[in-house]
Simulated assay, not measured.
Amino acid sequence: MKTLLIPTDFTYQSLQSIPEIAQQYYPQKVNIMLVHMLKITDSISELLMLSRRSTEIRQIPDNFYIRCRDLEKDYSHLIERIHIDIFYGSTIAVFNNYLDAHEVDGIVPPHSNYQLLFKNSIDPEVLIDRCSIRVINIAETTGPMVDIITPENELVEQQ
């Protein structure tokens, strides 16, 4: 099973490419890690509170969780699990350790309208461009139709 990391700003655009990406690995299922990246603070009081992560987690809209669950259900033949996480760090060494710890096999670049959500959010491309994991380039799925294979091996057109 492959594990793929996708940078997320918790918008629908972060999820659009998941069916197409998962399809590339069919019949093998994939784990999808949706990750928002934040610089680690140098404030001692903020570091003491880091384990709570409540501020950032509360910013994730409920409909984002619902859409992830729906994708897992609708594409259960392609997707094993969708996991949402926040990465704290800003160096390539820490990022590579994170990728190794989660056994990430590939990274999908962020979508074209990716938003930095917090004052300490970082552009994921800064780390992705320098990491040791393969970057999976796919065409944007906003326009053309994409054929997805269903469990019964029937082609179904998806918008």
Score class of each variant (00 low, 15 high):
residue 74 D to R: 14
residue 39 K to Q: 13
residue 110 P to F: 08
residue 123 D to R: 14
residue 44 I to V: 03
residue 14 S to D: 03
residue 41 T to S: 15
residue 54 S to L: 10
residue 56 E to R: 14
residue 159 Q to G: 01
residue 124 P to T: 02
residue 158 Q to D: 01
residue 107 I to H: 08
residue 156 V to M: 05
residue 152 E to H: 11
residue 96 N to I: 10
residue 76 S to M: 01
residue 71 L to H: 07
residue 25 Y to M: 00
residue 15 L to D: 04
residue 65 Y to D: 00
residue 123 D to K: 15
residue 74 D to V: 05
residue 35 V to P: 02
residue 74 D to G: 05
residue 30 V to S: 00
residue 138 I to K: 12
residue 1 M to P: 09
residue 39 K to W: 10
residue 96 N to M: 05
residue 121 S to I: 04
residue 65 Y to M: 05
residue 52 R to Y: 13
residue 31 N to Y: 06
residue 37 M to R: 08
residue 150 T to D: 03
residue 15 L to T: 05
residue 35 V to D: 03
residue 51 S to D: 13
residue 56 E to Q: 15
residue 116 L to F: 08
residue 93 A to Y: 12
residue 130 R to K: 15
residue 67 R to E: 08
residue 90 S to K: 11
residue 145 M to H: 14
residue 154 E to V: 13
residue 17 S to A: 11
residue 91 T to Q: 11
residue 149 I to V: 09
residue 136 I to F: 04
residue 24 Q to A: 01
residue 21 I to G: 00
residue 66 I to H: 12
residue 151 P to V: 08
residue 86 I to M: 11
residue 92 I to W: 12
residue 141 T to Y: 03
residue 159 Q to Y: 11
residue 35 V to R: 06
residue 148 I to F: 05
residue 128 I to K: 14
residue 143 G to T: 09
residue 80 E to Y: 03
residue 143 G to I: 11
residue 135 V to T: 11
residue 145 M to A: 03
residue 50 L to Y: 14
residue 71 L to D: 03
residue 105 D to N: 15
residue 6 I to H: 04
residue 47 L to N: 12
residue 38 L to H: 14
residue 110 P to D: 07
residue 127 L to D: 09
residue 10 F to V: 06
residue 112 S to L: 10
residue 5 L to C: 05
residue 48 L to R: 12
residue 140 E to I: 04
residue 138 I to E: 02
residue 35 V to L: 10
residue 11 T to S: 15
residue 39 K to P: 03
residue 131 C to H: 02
residue 101 A to H: 10
residue 85 D to M: 12
residue 39 K to N: 13
residue 82 I to T: 09
residue 145 M to S: 09
residue 146 V to I: 13
residue 51 S to A: 06
residue 8 T to K: 14
residue 89 G to Q: 10
residue 153 N to L: 05
residue 13 Q to M: 08
residue 43 S to N: 12
residue 71 L to M: 09
residue 38 L to E: 11
residue 150 T to W: 07
residue 94 V to R: 15
residue 28 Q to W: 06
residue 120 N to Y: 04
residue 41 T to Y: 07
residue 3 T to G: 11
residue 130 R to N: 11
residue 138 I to L: 10
residue 127 L to T: 01
residue 12 Y to A: 06
residue 97 N to G: 07
residue 142 T to Y: 03
residue 47 L to M: 13
residue 78 L to S: 04
residue 116 L to A: 07
residue 76 S to R: 13
residue 58 R to S: 14
residue 34 L to P: 02
residue 8 T to N: 11
residue 13 Q to L: 07
residue 10 F to P: 05
residue 55 T to K: 15
residue 135 V to M: 12
